[in-house]
Design a protein around this nucleic acid. Sequence first.
DNA 1: GTGATTGCAAATTTTTTGCAAGATA
DNA 2: TATCTTGCAAAAAATTTGCAATCAC
Lengths: 145, 145
Amino acid sequence: MDSEFLAEKERFVSRLKKHGMKATHQRMAVHEAMFALGHASADMVCEYLISRGGPAVTTASVYNILGELSSIGVYRRRFSSNNKMYFDVTTSPHLHLYDKENHMFKDVFDDELLEMIESRLRRRRFRGYSVDSVDIQLVCHPTRN
Amino acid sequence: MDSEFLAEKERFVSRLKKHGMKATHQRMAVHEAMFALGHASADMVCEYLISRGGPAVTTASVYNILGELSSIGVYRRRFSSNNKMYFDVTTSPHLHLYDKENHMFKDVFDDELLEMIESRLRRRRFRGYSVDSVDIQLVCHPTRN
DNA sequence: GTGATTGCAAATTTTTTGCAAGATA
DNA sequence: TATCTTGCAAAAAATTTGCAATCAC
């Protein structure tokens, strides 16, 4: 196990407890994978776990776990254009670079830009809706060289 | 047929021709649906066509058509978090309001904001990637009242 | 021990594919 | 007519469900 994960592990367990959820092996394994991958789909998590030779977690459980952890804010659903669900380990607010050919995400930090956008949007009201977050993706393609 | 669609129809046919594509009934029907719907998934298009009692188009063809029209820039793939593909009739650059409960999109126009964002991002370079577009979604939930 | 969680297998949902038949220019 | 497109049906891919078995607390 990655040593960096040790501190995160504690934090993770306490977040589970706070929501009355048990710290099962499967949840720990999925979180370790997500922590290492940063952004992933259910099968990327499964593959990661298998490649690690660790205790495999059923696909169905991986979906289940990713879903429940998203609902308590530990992960966040990402937006893709290839009809697969991706999740992201939430850290501080950030933008994403989305590689539309390989469907990979990378974090991009630019607090000033985010602040600029949010302050502008705070002034706007959208009838019938309440804005939860602003999601910004730089849609990219890889360059050859 | 909506009269507004008449002008659009011509424009659409010429875009098809420009790419050496034939103006088939199916493409016309799908485009009419997309033009009316603004943002839609394949089955929303199918439903729309059926509800109109018009000539139905096979699901497979709808997917095919939405895909090819996206590749020539007539539509654009949208980003959703529910593992379905949505498409959007591209008009001028705009943001999207995304209703995460009902998976519906609405256009939001704010040229000044877009310009602000793009001018800032133009200065940044991302190693190994070339930015095609910036996609901004206001992730919302409907308010009850 | 008890209730929450998981595994398993089957069902659903969404999208893609291959190829013969049909339509467009 | 020659080529591009579509329909159809089957396959693939992604996710969800139900329930009995298991595990965490």
